[in-house]
Amino acid sequence: MEAFTRLTSAAVPLPRPNIDTDQIIPARFLSRPREVNHGDFLFHDARRVPGTGERDPEFPLNREVFGAARIILAGRNFACGSSRESAVWALFDAGFRCAIAPSFGDIFRTNGMKNGLLPVVLPAEAVAALIGQIEAAPGAEVTVDLRTLEVTFPDGSVHGFEVDPFARHCLLEGLDEIGLTLSLEDEIAAFERRYGRENAR
């Protein structure tokens, strides 16, 4: 996994609640292996004019000023719905490394932490203020620091956030958990001996 420590970048605002993972990547693109660049599938239908396939110039992701954005800002319950990890892959492959919202779908939040995409929960008022600052100055930069657990807005204000300490450690170091858990083989085997045949069948 790619490590995340600190990121300064433009942020693209999607100020809507309940943006689901079906919108982030429609189901018909889910049969591709991870090696395929999923960035092209990101908001595939949402960013196009229905019926024509043309890119909608109004959709924030299509605006040139946000072309280099690596942070996505969204309304409450971002990436709710399906557990598809390809929602994270699509964002990651399109260059995003961080998402900021008042709340996230639980599974997406976990998927993000395991794939180098940091989900940051800030209070709704703070997210609204940040979106306001970005809309006033599109392309303005935001800094997200996983070491200090702080987001710095374009106006210089600093906002703390919380991340699960274990997942934070893994993301800071770029570790994946499987290797770590495999080193706990003795504990797992001991559990299995205690547990015996319970729930084996």
Binding site: S83, E85, E177, I178
Partner: peptide, 17 residues
């Protein structure tokens, strides 16, 4: 429900963090 990385973790270790 879990994501794909967690599915791999459970396959490999039969456990989940």
């Amino acid at each position: 429900g879990i994501g794909s990385s967690e599915v791999a973790h459970v396959l490999a270790t039969q456990t989940l963090w």
